[in-house]
Design a protein around this nucleic acid. Structure first.
Length: 453
RNA sequence: GGUGGAGUCGCCUAGUGGCCGAGGGCGCACGCCUCGAAAGCGUGUGAGGGGGCAACCCCUCCGUGGGUUCAAAUCCCACCUCCACCGCCA
């Protein structure tokens, strides 16, 4: 990696300047085999701790017990199956009398086998359910706490703008300039709907083009992926089974509207065994994203901050199962997001997310919050996550080492740009006294050189 | 939306109920041969789970899931994907 944009000064890495260093050896052993049943068997306490730190509803002891029972049943069924096969072999060579005998024997035997099979299916299903609820073990540097209130600000970069006039919020500004339709859009599509108009559309495209071009210089392959997806990739990424109410469903076709391109990006390689030489896979994924926002009903209903449908360029990395490598990519993804905000001349803060905020599958998560003058505070615009092999295990996404051994890969993702929220930030931060908007230098080439909208 | 065809161990392919717990070719790896190589010859060549201190052994997987049968790659049903043609369409 590394293409000469480390921005190392800003990056608290490897382990975060404000956080304690991890207990390396222990953490390494732990995370490398996370979600592996053998790991859970060998380190039940580590899993219990993670469950507690992340506030997850999971009975680890039930899981262990089921695992044991499941293996016992599997063993019995295997043995029985071996017998059944040998009996079937004999049948071909037997005479009629012997055949009748074998048939009778087999029948009784099959009842037992069938019974065991059913029990195995039941324990297996329950075990799978619990396994899907098993969290990744968070890195030791993450603040422990129930929710985002425990998050820690690592650093603040840039300065919020000072206005010598009364600044507008992005809704007032957009409406004054005829850049957005809210009332009409809501007649069409209900609450939180919006339509961008005129220069604001051009600005949105400019931001996406700029982000895509920046990522291309880092050898990220632009890829435009489905937002309308099946259930499997949602389970594979960890969006399901928990979190169902946040996702739009299209029941007539058994499809869902993904909340992020990450779903398709992981899904693209699910079930594959890549060659080590193909790694790292780097995508700049673009797609529409859909969220029901059920958990935040009636919050931020005004404007462009929290909408049901938005557009993203997503950074995504699929790399070898090496913690140091994943850590380097995490740093790079974060640095790129910071670079984007710096280029857009926006002030932001980088946050170390607490265990209760980071979600079940994550090892580490850093949010970036961008300054919004109308809110008088920083508000999330980016989220950078390392999942180690937790996601790859679910998606059965593996690679083969040169020595022939097969491993689950590591996955990471981070927003590059998500609009229209980021558009709102640009409008508010770069507005002029007469309701114009100054265009940051990096976007001008995408807007025919215009310096002011 | 309709009709027809197809999905086998990296690739190509054999295979129509027990001899397929999958044969052949290509590729790949190792060995022999060679000064070296090619050719030739030989051997090997997937994934997952489980048992055993171990050498090793067992089970599952022929797109996926069910079913029929003593026995399924092979027969039946549903689904998925691909191909062809027809219809519709940004």
């Amino acid at each position: 990696m590394g293409d000469g944009r480390p921005q190392g000064r800003l990056i608290a890495w490897p382990w975060g300047c404000d956080a304690a260093p991890p207990r390396g050896v222990i953490i390494q052993g732990l995370t490398r085999r996370m979600l592996d049943k053998r790991f859970i068997r060998d380190n039940p306490q580590a899993v219990r701790d993670a469950v507690a730190a992340k506030g997850i509803d999971l009975d680890v002891d039930e899981l262990l017990q089921l695992d044991q029972e499941n293996r016992k049943l599997q063993f019995e069924v295997d043995e029985a199956q071996a017998q059944r096969r040998s009996r079937s072999k004999q049948f071909a060579k037997a005479d009629e009398a012997r055949r009748a005998e074998l048939r009778a024997e087999q029948e009784a035997f099959d009842r037992q086998l069938k019974d065991n099979r059913e029990r195995l299916a039941r324990t297996g299903a329950r075990l799978a359910e619990l396994m899907l609820a098993t969290p990744n073990i968070p890195w030791s540097g993450a603040p422990v706490g129930p929710d985002e209130s425990a998050n820690v600000v690592l650093r603040t970069v840039g300065t919020p703008p000072r206005f010598d006039f009364a600044p507008l919020d992005h809704v007032e500004l957009a409406e004054r300039r005829g850049w957005a339709e809210f009332a009409r859009a809501r007649r069409v599509a209900g609450e939180r709907a919006y339509a961008l108009v005129g220069d604001l559309v051009l600005l949105e495209r400019a931001i996406h083009s700029y982000a895509l071009d920046l990522l291309r210089t880092q050898e990220f392959t632009p890829i435009s992926v489905p937002a309308l997806v099946r259930e499997e990739p949602l389970v594979g990424t960890g969006m399901l089974p928990k979190g169902r109410e946040e996702i739009y469903e299209v029941p007539a076709d058994d499809l869902f509207l993904a909340g992020t391109a990450e779903v398709a990006l992981v899904g693209l390689h699910a079930g594959e065994i890549l060659e080590a030489g193909q790694l790292p896979v780097r995508y700049a994924g673009i797609s529409a994203s859909f969220r029901r926002e059920i958990g935040s009903a009636s919050r931020d209903v005004r404007g462009l901050l929290r909408v049901h449908q938005f557009e993203k360029v997503e950074q995504f990395v699929l790399c070898a199962a090496d913690e140091a490598e994943s850590a380097r990519w995490h740093a790079q993804l974060l640095a790129t997001a910071e670079r984007i905000l710096t280029d857009l001349e926006l002030s932001y803060e980088v946050v170390e997310c607490a265990t209760g905020d980071m979600g079940v599958g994550k090892f580490r998560m850093n949010d970036i919050n961008t300054w919004f003058p109308s809110l008088g505070r920083y508000r999330e615009t980016h989220s950078c996550s390392t999942l180690h092999d937790w996601q790859a295990r679910r998606a059965n996404l593996r690679y083969r080492d040169p020595d022939g051994t097969i491993h689950f890969a590591h996955t990471l993702n981070n927003t590059a740009v998500a609009t229209p929220r980021l558009l709102a930030a640009l409008l508010e931060n770069h507005q002029t006294a007469d309701a114009g908007v100054r265009v940051p230098g990096v976007l001008r080439p995408y807007l025919g050189g215009r310096e002011l909208l």
